[in-house]
Amino acid sequence: MASSIRVDNIYAGYGSVRVLHNVSLNVAPRETVTLLGTNGNGKSTLIKTIMGVVRPTSGRIVATIDGKDYDLIGKETEEIIDLGVALVPEGRRLFPRLTVEENLLLGAYRPTARARLKDNMAYCYEAFPRLAERRSQLAGTMSGGEQQMLALGRALMSAPSILIVDEPSVGLAPLFVSRTIDMIAQLKERYHLTVLMAEQNFTQAMRIADKGYVIVHGEIAFRGDSPEEMQRSDLIRQHYLGM
């Protein structure tokens, strides 16, 4: 059964610095939703809040997994991962001195994921044959695009139903950006994932998104329920397309 995630009226920040103001968004089952915004507008903070790293001051975050609702606020990151929410952190955050396979094994750190370790490993190598070829190579010695594959693969190791990707295009060559975006779309189809992707690259993100939100200074400034609606938005035309 498909999963969804719903963020309602979240306020969050770091100490006295308030970053998110009344942010709400909804990722329906099997949808790819993109969260657009330039640096410093709160994309990563929202993702950290969903993953339990940042505690919000008010608001609700509910994940619906296999028809059951789970309140994510107050849960530890590892408990959220146990529910089937996986994160591909910004800048990939691999373990550069570990091999590809060891990085993947770490993705299965949770006892729930360890129980299906072999299946998930096969699943990962099937999705990324390149990783299978390089299983004993040190992660830090691979190209940016391959590292992004590994970061995606590591997230898949916990067999998630919701995949959260924070800025997959960061630090990648343009060719790898579009490949990475394609990979996310393929993974979503193949493994019936629900995807929330924060991105700065509007054109690339909109290739695969069903829906999009634009976050400006910690507030949702625009919501587009279809790619067409996003393209037509004045805000987006101004900020991203330079028109």
């Binding site: 990151t77 955050r93 373990f95 770490l106 750190y109």
Partner: peptide, 17 residues
């Protein structure tokens, strides 16, 4: 994993704290 990268460890589900 925590020693190498705390954020990455947390993202992999290592109960860092």
């Amino acid at each position: 994993a925590i020693r190498d990268d705390e954020t990455a460890a947390a993202a992999s589900g290592v109960p860092v704290l």
